[in-house]
């Protein structure tokens, strides 16, 4: 539907065009800004340009607030002002596509990684993408789906023949990561408001860790490379038979018992 503007004799936008153009002006910093501004009336203290800038500023603030909650350590390290700049650039590159803000910010680590090369000021912070990844999993784990209680009775009834095809399921609230940087120490030193400037030794080999939820609290645990590999194999749906063959240097039974006790393994099924 088209309305005729009385003063300029232009065709006004339909509701759809108005909304789409408004959104493009907000999320992509592009779109038909002049066209959209021509749809607005100036007010005593608010020009059309100023009206639009208020909404842009509101969006900046909302996204900064959300990302600051998800990435407190990254924010403390680069400082509030620089972090907010990153947030603005990130929000233009990755506008939100879901109503639930708890899901926003997943790509921040990848965004940092891509942009390290373009931001000379970040060259001393090449661990930030890995730190951001840790923070994302910490955040996401808090909101993850609950698991059903592990069925020990059903496990006890599994026959020797069935064991060959048995596949363990990892908890929804569990993930394993590795990093070349001492991200766990960095995170511990920076994830609160009272973060401190510390120097950290680079580890001699990769750091392996998992993030999980137990009794409604998110926690983290350092893993050996053997444990990491085993948990990755479980995540890749290797059968119990395959797990037995994967790594002779690990006590599989002991490890599986521990993972079940910790809630990292939440159940099992049989491969067809």
């Amino acid at each position: 539907m088209l309305f005729v503007k009385h003063d300029k004799m232009n065709y006004a936008m339909s509701l759809a065009d108005t909304q789409k153009n408004f959104m493009q002006c907000l999320i992509a910093d592009r779109g038909n800004v002049d066209g959209f501004l021509s749809e607005l009336s100036g007010m005593k203290t608010l020009t059309p340009d100023r009206q639009l800038s208020i909404y842009k500023s509101n969006l900046d603030g909302a996204h900064e607030k959300v990302l600051a909650q998800v990435y407190p350590a990254c924010r403390n390290i680069v400082g509030e002002k620089y972090f907010n700049q990153l947030c603005r650039q990130y929000r233009y590159r990755f506008p939100s596509v879901q109503p639930d803000l708890n899901n926003y910010g997943k790509a921040f680590s990848g965004y940092l990684k891509t942009n390290l090369a373009h931001h000379k000021e970040l060259e001393d912070f090449n661990y930030l993408p890995d730190l951001a990844l840790l923070e994302w999993y910490w955040h996401a784990t808090y909101f993850s789906e609950d698991d059903r209680p592990f069925d020990f009775n059903k496990l006890a009834q599994v026959s020797v023949e069935q064991q060959q095809a048995l596949v363990f399921k990892l908890s929804h609230a569990f993930s394993v990561q590795k990093s070349a940087f001492p991200v766990i120490e960095i995170w511990h030193a920076n994830n609160t408001a009272t973060s401190s400037n510390q120097m950290f030794e680079m580890p001699e080999s990769d750091v392996y860790y998992c993030v999980f939820r137990k009794d409604y609290q998110v926690d983290m645990e350092v893993l050996s490379q053997h444990q990491f590999d085993l948990l990755v194999s479980i995540g890749q749906q290797h059968t119990l038979n395959q797990l037995s063959d994967d790594d002779a240097n690990i006590d599989l039974q002991q490890q599986l018992q521990y993972y079940i006790k910790q809630g990292w393994i939440s159940g099992f099924y049989f491969m067809d």
Binding site: L15, Q19, F22, L26, V97
Partner: peptide, 17 residues
């Protein structure tokens, strides 16, 4: 608050038409 699949997470006004 959203259009074209993008979410602003802000309350955006509409023309009163």
């Amino acid at each position: 608050t959203s259009v074209d699949g993008f979410h602003s997470h802000d309350l955006l006004p509409i023309p009163y038409s």
